[in-house]
Design a binder for these strands. Structure first.
Lengths: 209, 209
DNA sequence: CTCGTATGGATAGCGGCACTTTCCACTATC
DNA sequence: GATAGTGGAAAGTGCCGCTATCCATACGAG
């Protein structure tokens, strides 16, 4: 279905000037020009626009990060594996301090213990080192002991995620599934974790007396 | 140990003007005045300052949100339960759209299925509705099917977290543990999840051929 | 005692970012 | 032919997390 910019705005809930801004920033492909100052937009534009908003609002990504992620999505040579890396890069805070030797060693030992193959220059590894560094700085010296418990739960999460992606019909769909799965998944885990913690703590309080 | 503002800055790595800014914003209690323009700061200030940086940098909280969270920490009447609510509120994006009836029903049914007691006006519930709404908007209609799998993993995470907090000696320590556990935990889960996903997808690729 | 440096406190300024506003010549539509 | 909408460019806005500048005063080495 074809539409003009006003309808695109109405159907997405995004103000027209903002859509123009996204077009300018390359987050949205230009519409098909029918005359020098008239263009038509399709459902694909609407879909992409909703995707942008989801990344910005739910994922909290900057405009530049959204551009990177969408670029990966549009790249025909993009594998699922590489796409995950791009997403990790986009989510990661720009400056993680990786200089803490102890935290680095804790992370390395953890990865080894799990028998995982995660290179120290990957974003995931750096992110973990950053967290462990922070934990040490704020005096949570036992925090590192939680990692193995977390790993078991996360492995379970990964199985669930993989199953979801494998049900996708096309590669393009799977790519978008991975991308969204990461953001939606992180947000979902945060929410469900809060619910579960509440539940577990109440159960504990009840059993105490 | 007692120090002046320059040393506080040096030991925390935070510029002195920024510390002054935090003092102004009420994120850090004033030092003890020894004369009209001289004050002394203690290790408690240093600890608090590191906490603030962790919340800002790792948790991505705004200054106002940090103030709320720290206020909860300082409140002598604060229970672990209430503290969790405050933290959830601080992490939550300010404006979640909860008007999607279908998403709301999906969330309600999920909570009921789990046998959980999570009121629809809690931040966790609203956050989940927001995620499900977004999932629907971007066309991930099967995303809701992941919830039960996530719930099992999150329950496991919650057990691990609870165990960690129960080992804390004092209530104050436990409060700070809960607070930091939420932020550190979310960041850790994101990082470990990325590692695990990578691992699972590689294992799958290997078994395929 | 002196003099350079540091301090607390107040006020103003800055840079980045995600939009918004304004303008224009032009076009579709009523 | 009047009115509203359009693509495109450029400048402006508001917020936020600092950062810079000042000042009267206080410390601390010599």
């Amino acid at each position: 279905m074809s539409m003009r910019i006003a309808e695109l705005g109405r159907r997405s809930g995004v103000p027209v000037p903002t859509i123009k801004y996204y077009l300018r920033e390359g987050l949205l492909p230009a519409g098909e020009l029918t005359s020098p100052n008239q263009a038509r937009y399709t459902d694909a534009h609407l879909h992409r626009l909703r995707l942008v908003r989801a990344l910005v609002e739910l994922g909290g990504l900057s405009i530049a990060a959204v551009r990177d992620v969408l670029g990966a999505l549009d790249d025909p040579d993009m594998s699922l594996h590489k796409a995950m890396g791009t997403v990790s890069a986009a989510v990661a805070p720009p400056d993680v301090d990786v200089s803490d030797e102890v935290a680095h060693e804790q992370a390395r030992a953890f990865v080894e213990r799990q028998g995982w193959d995660c290179p120290p220059d990957s974003y995931a590894f750096k992110a973990l080192v950053g967290v462990l560094t922070t934990a040490r700085e704020v005096g949570q010296h036992r925090f590192v002991d939680l990692l193995d418990g977390y790993a078991r739960a996360c492995a379970q999460l990964a199985e669930v995620d993989l199953d979801y992606v494998l049900r996708m019909a096309s590669k393009d769909e799977a790519l978008e599934g991975v991308l969204l799965g990461t953001f939606l998944g992180d947000a979902t885990v945060a929410a469900v974790r809060a619910m579960a913690r509440r539940e577990v703590s109440e159960r504990h309080a009840a059993s105490e007396g």
